[in-house]
Amino acid sequence: MALDVGADFEKRWLNAPQAVRQTYIDDLSRICELFATDVRLENWLSYNKQAQRQSYERIENAYAELKAELVEQARIRRQHALEQSLAKKRAQQQAYLDDLQLDERLQYQQQTQQLQALQQQLSQESHHYTERYTPTPKLRFEPNANTVISPEIQQALDNLKIRLELEAEGLIEQIQQSVNSLNQKIQQAADEEIRYILEQHPSSNT
């Protein structure tokens, strides 16, 4: 007797669940019982009918479990692929944010350096401007030894010297006040500009 198991039997057999293969083996063993000399056909047929129903149920359950397992494996693969995709997107977003924060810090540093350079330049110019208007030596009138000056002329010269000194000191004081006011305004403007940049770029402080 030849047993036709169909094409690709080895592949189908190895791919079948273990419970299915065991059921087929049990069925074959039950069929082989017919070759025993003491078997009673009526009893075997009754027993075989019940055994076939059980075999069918075991095969159905085995393939249902296999299907559920394959579905679960597919779900896990999809979930894993989704998590990888989300992780990649988060990494790209974080890299973008890092580049943005780095650019903001570089801009803040550049603007701060420019403001510091401007403040230093203005301070130097103010200092130079102040030095140009430092108090000049007091006026001195030293007549020639051979010059004869009357008391009236000497009094007029002394009065003139005093008046010029007072006017010069008053003018110098006004200039110094103007320079000090200009320095204060320059410092205030620089502080306000730095404060504005800090408010516009809060992340640069971290």
Rank of each mutant, 00 (worst) to 15 (best):
Q84F: 01
S178Y: 06
A168Y: 10
L171C: 01
E193S: 03
L14N: 14
L198W: 05
Q177Y: 09
A91Q: 11
I25D: 11
E173D: 12
Q174T: 04
G170Y: 02
T37M: 04
E152Y: 03
Q79G: 13
Q110K: 11
E193G: 00
R58C: 02
T112G: 01
R53K: 08
W44L: 06
S46V: 10
A51Q: 05
S46Q: 09
S46N: 14
L122S: 00
E125R: 12
Q110V: 03
Q155F: 05
L157M: 12
V148W: 14
D4V: 12
D27K: 03
Q107V: 09
E125H: 09
R77L: 06
A145W: 07
S123F: 01
Q154N: 13
N43A: 05
Y196W: 02
L139T: 07
D98L: 05
E152H: 04
Q200G: 08
K11F: 14
E33W: 06
L166S: 14
Q111K: 11
P143G: 10
K89V: 08
R132L: 15
N146F: 02
L41A: 06
A7Q: 13
E69H: 15
A91V: 04
S29V: 02
C32Y: 01
Q93I: 01
T136C: 02
D98Q: 07
Q120R: 01
D4T: 15
Q116D: 14
T206V: 15
R21I: 02
E152A: 06
D98R: 04
A51C: 06
P151K: 10
S150Y: 02
L86H: 05
L139Y: 07
K185P: 01
L171H: 02
L3I: 13
A51H: 09
D4E: 15
P151R: 10
K185V: 06
Q176I: 06
I197G: 00
L86K: 10
L139K: 07
L86Q: 11
F35C: 03
S181W: 06
P151D: 13
Q52H: 11
L139I: 08
R21N: 04
Y108S: 08
L45F: 08
E60N: 11
A36P: 00
A2E: 09
R12S: 12
L82A: 15
H128K: 09
I59D: 04
Q94F: 08
I197P: 00
D191V: 01
I153S: 08
S126A: 14
C32I: 03
F9R: 15
Q79C: 11
Q92H: 03
K67Y: 07
L97I: 06
P137G: 10
R53W: 03
F141N: 12
F9M: 15
Q184W: 03
I149K: 04
L34I: 12
R58N: 05
S29H: 04
L66R: 14
A190M: 08
Q177N: 14
I31D: 06
S85E: 10
A16N: 11
L166N: 15
R132S: 10
Q155S: 14
E167F: 02
K185N: 09
Q114I: 12
L166F: 12
S123W: 00
L3A: 11
V148P: 09
Q52E: 12
K89Y: 02
S150N: 04
Q116P: 00
R90A: 09
N15G: 10
V179Y: 00
P137S: 08
L164P: 00
Q177P: 00
L82R: 14
